[in-house]
Structure formats: structure tokens, C-alpha cells
């Protein structure tokens, strides 16, 4: 807690001094997302100040959404980049490889997952490729993604697939398939412990589950992608117009 400095000889109230030190530490990057702050008692002990002052300082920072309290765990820094996009630009992270880094976690070919087969309109025991990945910005996860592609539509896949390639590029450039539209379904769910781990959030925090069906020419389904975005750090916007 050496980023806190209190001068008791000046008029500025103790709580304001504590709050502004922590604010500055966050701004300067000394404290980063998910860092744990000292407990109220720890600050009281070191600086010999009242618990009320520390409470007020923390409350101010909580109101400003710079930190947050998690029951039974402590107080944490919350500031983190928010992925803010138009609904129509959901896959913006694929278009800017300098800003977003892709890490592949899993590559597989599977024939026994009923839900995915149903979404891809495959027969039972027809195979599909699975790619799981995390997309990060400044080392913090933006989205955790599972990509499913029917095997029979993507010949020589192992040869043509490059680690980290965007799914839009893969379908439309590498395989020259026309994507006519992407149907997205948005739902809120609680992060499981593994999703929380991959998204660098806490279990049970709200996440966006966005399922995308890629529709090709002839209205056939050429891919299915399941995206998990951390709820607190993702915003989608749209301006809609009423029909007169």
C-alpha cells in the first residue's frame, strides 16, 4: 500500500487524500485490473486513521466505479477497457489485428456433440471442426470464442487453417464462401469458473453469451460461433428508427 501517502498536517480531509492516492495509482497503472486493495483495518493500522475515513474513501471510489467490493474476498480495482461496438460490428476485433491478439486454445474434429450438430444442421455422426480461442487487448481478454465449422464444407482444413485467423477471413477469403448474413442471439448468463478464468473476471459475474449462425448463399449454415464477452466490459449500441 505504498501508493498511499497521507499528510496529516494539511487541511485536505484524510478520506480525500486516501481516495485521490488510490485514483492516481490506478491512473498511472501502478494498480491494475483485479488488484486487491488493502483492507480498511490494514490502512487504519498503518496510518493510524479512523475506519470511517477509509470507509468514506472506498465508498467514493466505489461510486465512481473505480473499485468494487466482493463479499468475502476484499476490494478490487475494476477499471478495464470496455469493448464498445455497434451491434452490426460485433466482430470488429477480427478487423484490427494490431489491437487484438488471438490465442488459440484448442483445435479438434468432433462427431458426437448433438447440440452443435443440430445448430449446424448436420446429421448425427457427421464431423465438424472445433476451434477455441481467447482474444485479448492489452493482455486482458475481450472475448472467449468457440468456432464450429462443418468438415465437409472445408476441405484440406488442417493445411489451410492458420492459428489465430479470424473466422470471417477464414470463411470468406480463404474458402471464398459468401456470408449473406450473421444471425446473433444475445443472452445473459453467469460465468462458470472456467469461463471466469479465461475472461479474467470472477465466477458468477454476468457475461454475454452471443451465438452467431453464419448463413451462406442458398441459406445454408456455413458456421456457428459461440462468443462469451465479460458483461461489465462489453457494450453494444444501436440507434433504431421508428417507422412513421
Amino acid at each position: 500500500m505504498d501508493y498511499i501517502f497521507i499528510d496529516k498536517t494539511i487541511k485536505t480531509s484524510i478520506y480525500k487524500q486516501i481516495a485521490s492516492c488510490i485514483s492516481q495509482a490506478i491512473e498511472s497503472g501502478r494498480l491494475t485490473y483485479n488488484d486487491r486493495l488493502p483492507t480498511e483495518k490494514e490502512i487504519c493500522d498503518v496510518f493510524d486513521v479512523s475506519q470511517t475515513a477509509v470507509k468514506m474513501a472506498y465508498q467514493q471510489l466505489i461510486n465512481q466505479e473505480q473499485i468494487k467490493r466482493v463479499k468475502g474476498r476484499g476490494t478490487f480495482v475494476t477499471n478495464r477497457h470496455v469493448y464498445h461496438q455497434e451491434f452490426s460490428n460485433l466482430y470488429a476485433f477480427e478487423k484490427n489485428p494490431n489491437l487484438y491478439q488471438v490465442t488459440d486454445l484448442l483445435f479438434d474434429c468432433v462427431d458426437d456433440a448433438y447440440i452443435i450438430q443440430r445448430m449446424l444442421k448436420l446429421e448425427r455422426h457427421e464431423s465438424f471442426y472445433v476451434i477455441q480461442r481467447v482474444v485479448k487487448q492489452n493482455n486482458l481478454p475481450v472475448v472467449y470464442q468457440s468456432i464450429y465449422l462443418p468438415e465437409h464444407m472445408y476441405p484440406q482444413f488442417k493445411k489451410k487453417y492458420q492459428k489465430g485467423i479470424g473466422v470471417l477471413t477464414l470463411i470468406s477469403d480463404v474458402y471464398q464462401k459468401e456470408i449473406v448474413q450473421i444471425q446473433n442471439t444475445y443472452s445473459p448468463i453467469k460465468a462458470s469458473s472456467s469461463e471466469a478464468q479465461l475472461l479474467n473476471i470472477l465466477p458468477n459475474e454476468a457475461i454475454y453469451l452471443i451465438r452467431s449462425l453464419f448463413i451462406g448463399a442458398n441459406q445454408n449454415i456455413i458456421g456457428y460461433v459461440v462468443n462469451y464477452f465479460p458483461g461489465e466490459f462489453t457494450e453494444f449500441e444501436v440507434t433504431v428508427h421508428a417507422r412513421p
Binding site: 453467469k190 461489465e232 462489453t234 453494444f236 421508428a242
Partner: peptide, 27 residues
């Protein structure tokens, strides 16, 4: 005429959850 909407996924605070018949913290 026009509506600008920004959506997020959040955990419901208790004072809202009770009206929606949900548990506190439900997504």
C-alpha cells in the same frame, strides 16, 4: 422517432431482482 440503445450484461441488484422474481445477482 429515434432511440439510441446501449446494452450490457449485468448481475441484478436485489432491489430490481425482487420485482423480476429473480435471485439477487441473476444475469
Amino acid at each position: 422517432k429515434d432511440s439510441h440503445r446501449v446494452t450490457k450484461a449485468v448481475n441484478l441488484p436485489s432491489h430490481i431482482a425482487k420485482y423480476l422474481n429473480e435471485q439477487e445477482g441473476a444475469p
